[in-house]
Design a protein around this nucleic acid. Structure first.
Length: 423
RNA sequence: GGAGAGGUGCUGGAGUGGUUGAACAGGCACGCCUGGAAAGCGUGUAGGGGUGCAAGCCUCUCGUGGGUUCAAAUCCCACCCUCUCCGCCA
């Protein structure tokens, strides 16, 4: 979140970024509550200071019972007055906090203006659209034709937006995960195995809650949410900690499943496995000092692009506009690969620089030097890359006229074959 | 899930309801000493919030949240977590 301090000091900036986002937040109300809070706080603390002072005198009075009793009588009412003011103060703080949690991040000045995704800017397109001697099929035809993608049975056991992969496709899926992990490790990202279920407090810390509850799966018996992305776990890794000097930057990677309700997206992308409730993703995550975050961001983008390029796919780089940027993010780049069967660009990676927004929510700090006070680090994330969309991309790009699928060169060691045939 | 024990500062570990934000020890930082180091000696060593140009002052925090009291690390209640034993189990 944005600190109340920041909102107080940069009110105009915060408001103009909100309008760039094409959204609103009760900034004036927040400033108002903050005034009230500080006024109450000063009153309460003055009373507390007095009570503390007199209490010490009572303790020091020793055997002088008369003086002692006089002071006790004097203080008797003070405690009650403190309690009364404190109730007000607590209520004000809780109102303030609730509103603060709903204010989105500021927007980086480099982000293009625009109301929604239609205004995103294609920064760069790499590679040419592939040409086929035949009419390329979409993956929702290729997969079932190979007997390797089964929608009906997925739906039978779990409902819509679930599917089963088998044989060559299942193996391709697993090979991609291994490939991504290995390449990211080579690039200096440390592998992690993370919990897939997190507490409500953790989802608040990462910014999923309170606003995006509708997109999360929750256990009804206990306080557990299924992660919608590994980012959520990575943010919470150092929640409520102060990292010692010399630890940053931290460059992490993990493969996790992701669970999304996608209620908002009902009716969208119903065909195929582009938008599903359960998918795998390899996620990169960085903790760094503020003056390094732009450099780290570029590093993430470069790494994710390298993965796509190694697989020989055509892709484009999108700079998300101010109206399409996520709640936590100050700046986001998406990578989309061309999907010749479906005839569309497919988002396989999204990278965000969240600045210190999540660090504030999660109360993560670092110490720049042994004798320095704690500061908030910047947190960044980027997919590297998302499944099963990359399976889709490879299927559609590497399909052959007979319906089989060639295995990209770099994946052959992982697959032990150069073609995915009929299961 | 059952029974028991316990949660205090960077760490270990004290703490009788009243100058305890917290003894003592260790660690770490700085200084002295030394050719250099060790040892030794000295000093310092939490975070949040409020206020102030600043120095500073005030306040909160001893797992979390309530309660009792003029006053709570200390007493009471609830919850969370950790450890040991038992049960169950991939």
């Amino acid at each position: 979140m944005l600190s109340i301090q920041f909102i107080r000091d940069h009110t105009d900036r915060v408001k103009s970024d909100l309008s760039r986002r094409n959204t609103t937040a009760p900034i004036d109300r927040i400033l108002d509550l903050d005034d009230t809070r500080r006024r109450l706080l000063q009153d309460v603390e003055a009373l507390r200071a007095r009570r503390n002072a007199v209490s010490k005198e009572i303790g020091a009075a020793g055997k002088d019972a008369v003086a002692r009793q006089a002071k006790i009588d004097e203080m008797r009412g003070v405690g009650d007055r403190i309690d009364v003011l404190d109730v007000d103060l607590k209520a004000t703080e809780s109102d303030l906090n609730r509103l603060l949690l709903e204010v989105p991040n500021i927007i980086d000045p480099s982000v293009p203006d625009g109301p929604d995704e239609s205004a995103n800017i294609v920064v760069e397109t790499v590679g040419d659209l592939p040409k086929f001697d035949f009419v390329p099929k979409p993956h929702w035809e290729l997969g079932p034709d190979l007997g390797a993608l089964d929608f009906e049975r997925g739906v039978k056991m779990s409902g819509s937006r679930f599917f089963v992969m088998r044989a060559g496709l299942a193996r391709l899926h697993r090979a991609l995960i291994q490939f991504f992990l290995n390449e990211n490790i080579k690039a200096g990202f440390q592998e992690h195995y993370l919990p897939y279920m997190l507490t409500e407090a953790s989802l608040f810390a990462s910014g999923q809650l309170p606003k995006f509850r509708d997109n999360l799966y929750k256990d009804h018996e206990e306080d557990y949410f299924l992660i919608p992305t590994a980012e959520v776990a990575f943010v919470n890794l150092y929640r409520d900690e102060i990292l010692p000097p010399g630890m940053l930057p931290l460059r992490y990677v993990a493969h996790t499943p992701c669970f999304r309700r996608e209620k908002m997206a009902a009716g969208r992308d119903v065909r195929g496995i582009k938008r599903v409730h359960q998918f795998e993703k390899v996620e990169m995550f960085v903790y760094c000092e503020p003056d390094q975050s732009e450099r780290e961001f570029q590093r993430l983008v470069t790494q994710a692009r390298a993965l796509i390029e190694m697989l020989g796919l055509t892709y484009r780089v999108l700079a998300l506009c101010s109206g399409d940027i996520g709640f936590n993010s100050a700046k986001t780049v998406d990578l989309e690969v061309w999907s010749p069967g479906a005839g569309e660009w497919l988002e396989v990676s999204s990278g965000s620089n969240c600045l210190d927004f999540q660090a504030h929510r999660a109360n993560i700090r670092y110490r720049p030097a042994l004798d320095a006070g704690p500061r908030f680090p910047h947190l960044l994330n980027m997919s590297g890359l998302a499944l099963p969309r990359m399976v889709v991309a490879i299927m559609e790009n590497y399909q052959r006229e007979d319906g089989t699928i060639a295995v990209p060169e770099v994946l052959r060691p992982y697959m032990g074959t150069d073609v995915i045939g009929h299961a």
